[in-house]
Design a protein around this nucleic acid. Sequence first.
RNA 1: GCGAGAGUGGCGGAAUUGGCAGACGCACUGGACUUAGGAUCCAGCGGGCAACCGUAGGGGUUCAAAUCCCCUCUCUCGCACCA
Length: 825
Amino acid sequence: MSQYNPHVVEEKRQQIWEQNHLFRATEDESKEKYYLLEMFPYPSGKIHMGHVRNYSIGDVIARYKRMRGFNVLHPMGWDAFGMPAENAAIDRGIHPASWTYDNIDYMRNQLKRLGFSYDWDREIATCDVAYYRWEQWMFLKMFEKGLVYRKSSPVNYCQKCQTVLANEQVEGGACWRCGEEVLQKELTQWFFAITKYADELYEYCDKLPGWPERVLNMQKNWIGKSFGVEVDFPMEDGTFLTIFTTRPDTLFGVTFMVLAAEHPLALSLSRNTDQEAAVNAFVAKTKAMDKSFRAEITTEKEGVFTGKYVTNPLTGTKVPIFVGNFVLMEYGTGAIMAVPAHDQRDFEFAKEYGLPVILTIMPEGGALQPETMEGAYEGDGKMVNSGPFNGRNNREAIPSIIDYLEEKKIGKRTVNFRLRDWGISRQRYWGAPIPIIYCDACGTVPVPYEDLPVVLPLKVEVKMVGKSPLAECAEFYNVECPVCGKPAKRETDTMDTFVESSWYFLKYTCADHNEGPLDRKRVDYWMPVDQYIGGVEHAVLHLLYSRFFNRVLNELGLVGVREPFENLLTQGMVIKDGAKMSKSKGNVVDPDYMIEKYGADTARLFCLFASPPEKDLDWNDKGVEGCFRFLLRVWRLIVERLDGLRDVEAVFEPLNDDADTVQLAFLIHKTIKQVTEDVDRFHLNTSIARIMELVNGIYKYIDKDRKEEGDRRLIRGALETLLVLLFPFVPHIAEELWEMLGVDGKSLSTQWPRYNEKYVQEDTVLIVVQINGKLRDRCEVQRDTDQEQLKSIAYDLEKIKKHLEGKTIVKTIVVPNKLVNIVVK
RNA sequence: GCGAGAGUGGCGGAAUUGGCAGACGCACUGGACUUAGGAUCCAGCGGGCAACCGUAGGGGUUCAAAUCCCCUCUCUCGCACCA
């Protein structure tokens, strides 16, 4: 009898798959397509368990969908530009390109050894010129449409990575990649106008039922849509100070105004007044303050009077204008109306500077006094001190207040977003060059389409100098102006690597297409992605950028759909000893080691079985061993009985009335049903549990020596079913055993089994008998026994009789085929 | 602070709709086979001698609640002076 040797089995199967190009996808209008995508990895060196998990989940679905008859696209590639390649170059003197391509070779081999069913013919690496040249093309198109622009503004800067970061790449004031504190720097940078799509990106969150609520909330939160009103407060010189507020119901309580230090009026208002020196000093001090410190909620609220006043357009009251450290120039108009009675920040500021507090909302049944308040009242209630709106509920009054403001031309309805444009300039080498030329005479000139690609030069010394290494490469940046022919300079910044990942899913659909950016016909065949699988860490990065980019490409006529990802599954992290697996924590389990010790099938099985895909997975070496043992058990189940089963023809129903035999038939069909339903809703862990139960059931059945022909045929049917169900999860061992069984003319991987309704529902059902909702007994009865009969059966049970002694039956609830509940007093 | 999600045996986790709580696996205990067992097989495995009690805690709805509602606590994640 042959031993289970995963290495031999896996190598053999993988060779066969590769030789036969089994996972190659071709566009075929006659078949229903299914585009399954897992987030592509960064080629950092080796894959980690998070990858194994992500791709194991994906592979189950890919194989399952193929077995269900779908034309499946399941591609893989490399998010190959980025900082670590440069760091390796600096640390070890290896060129980023060779470091990257070596890693890709190694990791591709790892993925192949895990047996994932990718169409490797469509593999892409984003650092290939053939890829990024079309990104440059897209950049130029966006430039023409005004969707990419250059401006000077304060940007996030990581000292350690020596580059600018997008807002989405700053996590709690620190660099998302290295954790270094992020500084603010005034720089001229390129931006993608993602804010033009803010509203649509926000509103479509409600049209993505296939996405996890959590991710949609994070996106909505990030985009930050808020409804309010812009109100013009007249100033003494006849101009207006415009503010944005979501709380027009507190307008009557405004006692002062606050400008951001960066507000254009901050300095000009006090010019040539007594307050000038104080304001100048305050503005200088505030601007110099570290942004993350300034944004700290606990930072004390400070400000200075500008010497000027505005008039409250509703009350006619004169209120002073301050410059304050807690107002953000980036949000709204950079100026606020302050209502200390109903906003805690304003309250603190008012207390500090002795400003009045006017109450405009009274809590239900309350009697707040401005003099005795210890904090702002931010709840709802009845409006007071509010002229015509007195007595109304503040929330309900808001629409009519805004109507009133609009009518009087004091204000207008406005929607404000938190989202900022996406800064994509990176002062780094290993990225796609931005196809722009600066000419003293002609200004900013896009590289002509016929001059694309702007190839990233390989002969560049990579080092950390605070600017792009390309800025030191004269052959690169010295060019002729495409317009006037005079000497000009190339842009030396490269694009954020998130630009590459914003459209890679489109490139897969037509990876070999080089005559243009994308082959619309093939794009439209495959798009949208039916199922996307990846980590939740990209909820507001990649997943938001991609939605934006896809819209732009849709408008450029390159894609038919507006939303790229129909369904999204965010898998949990891999945890060990209470912490995320990571090199720095020293708790990593190396996939190579797992393959070496147990084989790919075991590694995959454990990742799938130990927890449901969307939850964190707690790594457990003993659990891995259990999975290996299970595969051994399956192996033995078949191999030990091969001789007696090889020439038997499978049946999937009992050929005699033997109770055990009938039961086995039921088990087969029930397992098919449950596994199908569970895989369909991504309950992969319970699918595997069901299959384990099937194995246990088969063992139990064959425990009694089954000599009868009919019984043997059913065993054969059970084993075939088992292997087919196992195939998406552990394809190597399943296929190997299938071959050993010698199933003529039937392919394991093309047929997902169907269950027979007849063997899913038994003729008898177990009825639970409760008294006052507590389980007292059970009994087996014929399916669909009528209610009255059920009642009398229940009353007749010994245990029930005992419990009923001396009690009065109030009523009896009968749930057909399920339970009887007797209510007694 | 705001928003979202979660809390079930020693552990990972089951329980489409309110209807047998703890499937499946790990760990553990006992036994069988064995020169040996870290292999395999069999049995047991929430607590309690029991009646009973048990899904973070408290209240409610219901014939019936892990599941629905309210309050409290704890944890995780995201955003955080966003006006």
